[in-house]
């Protein structure tokens, strides 16, 4: 735990000083919200617009968290740590970045799409948290996978979006239900899928990460 805390602390401190990733991700998210809102801004379009925004924001930001190590990746790998812990730290950093993006883009979705977001905020937090964890798990695994590949910025969305599509479908379903005023138990199936997705991909990524970063 201490290792993870240290690694996350290091990344967050770096990010706090430069604010590169969150500003790029956040700006992209705001832009997407505006582009999507300008083309179709009814309340029924809100869930899809939100999740398209989060998924694309994630693909942009997650390529950077490994790139930020640049030449230090080798140093990080030389540290006598379980590779799973490096994954955990990177995934946590990515997830926190995504949460920031989710939070700062909410007012825009509230203003452009539907005010219902504010009245259903506690329920809405469920799919946003569960969906965010899954996006961070898959994004961190693939982000680490392609950090040394050519064209990695193009490659991450191509690899990540199809794999997270079930998550996006379930998250949009859950968000739609919540914004339509359904009680939380009515979207149990969607939340269940999100939870299973998170468990499978957090576990698989944790185990596979050892093979991702070796030299």
């Amino acid at each position: 735990m201490r290792v993870v805390r240290l690694l996350v602390g290091k990344d967050l401190r770096l990010e706090w000083r430069g604010r590169e990733i969150v500003s790029a991700m956040g700006l992209l998210a705001l832009l997407l919200a505006i582009v999507l809102g300008a083309t179709r801004s009814g309340p029924e379009a809100a869930p899809a617009a939100m999740w398209v925004t989060y998924a694309f924001g994630a693909t942009l930001g997650f390529t950077r968290t490994f790139a930020l190590e640049r030449d230090h990746l080798t140093a990080l790998l030389l540290a006598p740590l379980d590779r799973g812990l490096i994954f955990a730290a990177k995934a946590l950093t990515n997830w926190l970045g995504l949460v920031v993006v989710q939070v700062i883009s909410l007012p825009l979705f509230g203003a452009l799409f539907t005010e219902t977001i504010w009245t259903r905020l506690p329920a809405l937090a469920l799919p946003m948290l569960l969906g965010g964890i899954g996006l961070a798990a898959v994004g961190t695994l693939f982000g680490g996978l392609i950090v040394q590949a050519r064209l990695r910025e193009a490659l991450l969305p191509i690899l990540m979006l199809p794999v997270v599509l079930p998550l996006v479908i379930a998250a949009v379903g859950a968000t739609t239900g919540i914004l339509d005023g359904l009680p939380v138990w009515a979207i149990g199936a969607q939340l269940q899928l999100l939870l299973v997705f998170d468990i499978i991909f957090v576990t698989a990524s944790f185990l596979l990460f050892e093979y991702v970063v070796e030299e």
């Binding site: 898959v138 695994l141 693939f142 996978l145 392609i146 590949a149 794999v163 596979l208 093979y211 991702v212």
Partner: peptide, 13 residues
């Protein structure tokens, strides 16, 4: 190695 991981994740998905 990267492809192998995608091959595994794809089937899990």
């Amino acid at each position: 190695r990267a492809a192998a991981i995608i091959g595994i994740v794809g089937v899990l998905d």
